[in-house]
Design a protein around this nucleic acid. Structure first.
Lengths: 217, 217
DNA sequence: TGCAAAGCGGAGGGCGCCTCCGTATATGCC
DNA sequence: GGCATATACGGAGGCGCCCTCCGCTTTGCA
């Protein structure tokens, strides 16, 4: 016997960890600036490491995308945790979606990379879905429990709608557009006031404007 | 001076037209099968022409995407024309969106290409937007005129939502998912029953449309 | 039928992807 | 502290794809 178990794998070397971090940082910068198709050699250069080092840590281009992507997802999950205790259910959902859009906005160039990643490794797919759908699910369930949101739409559906809408953007004003679209979508999510009597028009000033959105040209 | 005007440009040669057609056909096949990143040399090979010929007709990869894309858009426009005279406004809209989803479904591999194209040439962008938003606008306006659809959402918005939702797909059941999402979205588009009384004198089937939406830029 | 012009095809330079291996360095043992 | 060795580094080099350029072929018009 040489090794007791696979769990004891001779901790990674210090410089390896450092370099891995550098590459991730560089990748984020380069991809954000030059799009997801930027040269990997440029990433290595920016990170100050050899191309070989980059490939050892991230055997494929997708692997590099993944690593960056995972970080983003983690942050989004935490965001939902914070919102969970806030305000009204529908508002919380709205706000999370909005923050999400804003978040994506800061990494324009990464959009293509994210999409690619989503299409790629199924493991990554499930990872992000688990994390994000859990976040949305939390917000949704509160609304459903309160009778404000219909129960026949899954968190996955909402996530898909959100990501999809965010993906198509290239013009300056895209953020506002997506916000508007998500508003419409959330309206669709609310329980349809089918009952003969209209119910509870409780509006909050701090929330969002109920209607009267400006006519879109 | 040799030529009277640019309008008289010595018609294209027959074999040129034929080859162009072949390349387009091959591109559609190759991209659909192997994704948008397939080798252009593979396309040329499949088309039975030299790589030089391909590049003369389509100087860049994006130009080739564009050409394929345009065809699709044309077909979608015609589809809307047919639906224009059918059934109820909301149903017509729903049906167009559904057909659209189905249409996209037949070219899975092309999705990335379409997105790329949309991000690329602004000329293509305006072309497809003009065509598709006009289609949606037609359907929307009928619903608005009938008082069944809210008037504060532009055709561009709906298009964006649709394309975005379609983009994110890789699993078998994605079509059904998108259909469900669009249903929710359309619910959001319907006039919210907020008005104190349900007046809605909906007569006028197919009559005049209200003031047409102003042509966007 | 003859002749330009229009179009064709593929060789070739350049670049990015990825592998492979000799060199450098951190960690563990004494 | 000093040494041994597994671990990690870096970049040269082979490969394939992108795109251009130019000599050859085909077409259409007189």
């Amino acid at each position: 016997m040489t090794e007791p178990s696979a769990a004891l794998v001779r901790k990674p070397r210090a410089d390896a960890i450092r370099n891995r971090e550098r590459v991730l940082e560089a990748a984020k910068a380069v991809f954000s600036a030059g799009g997801a198709e930027a040269s990997l050699e440029a990433v290595a250069r920016q990170a100050g490491v050899g191309i070989g080092t980059l490939y050892r840590h991230f055997p494929t281009r997708e692997a590099l995308y993944e690593a960056v992507y995972r970080r983003e997802v983690e942050q989004l999950g935490e965001l939902a945790e914070n919102l969970k205790t806030e305000a009204k259910p529908v508002d919380a959902l709205r706000r999370w979606l909005a923050s999400n859009i804003e978040f994506v906005a800061t990494k324009k160039g990464m959009a293509a990379a994210l999409a690619l990643a989503a299409h790629g490794s199924p493991e990554l797919h499930s990872f992000s879905f688990e994390r994000l759908t859990k976040a949305i699910g939390t917000l949704l369930d509160r609304g459903i429990a309160a009778g404000e949101i219909r129960g026949d739409v899954s968190p996955e559906d909402v996530l898909r709608a959100l990501v999809g809408m965010c993906y198509l953007h290239d013009q300056p004003g895209w953020q506002a557009t997506v916000l508007r679209l998500m508003d419409v979508f959330v309206d669709g999510l609310r329980v349809q006031p089918e009952p003969p009597r209209k119910a509870a028009p409780k509006q909050r000033a701090g929330g969002r404007k109920t209607v009267a959105r400006k006519r879109k040209r």
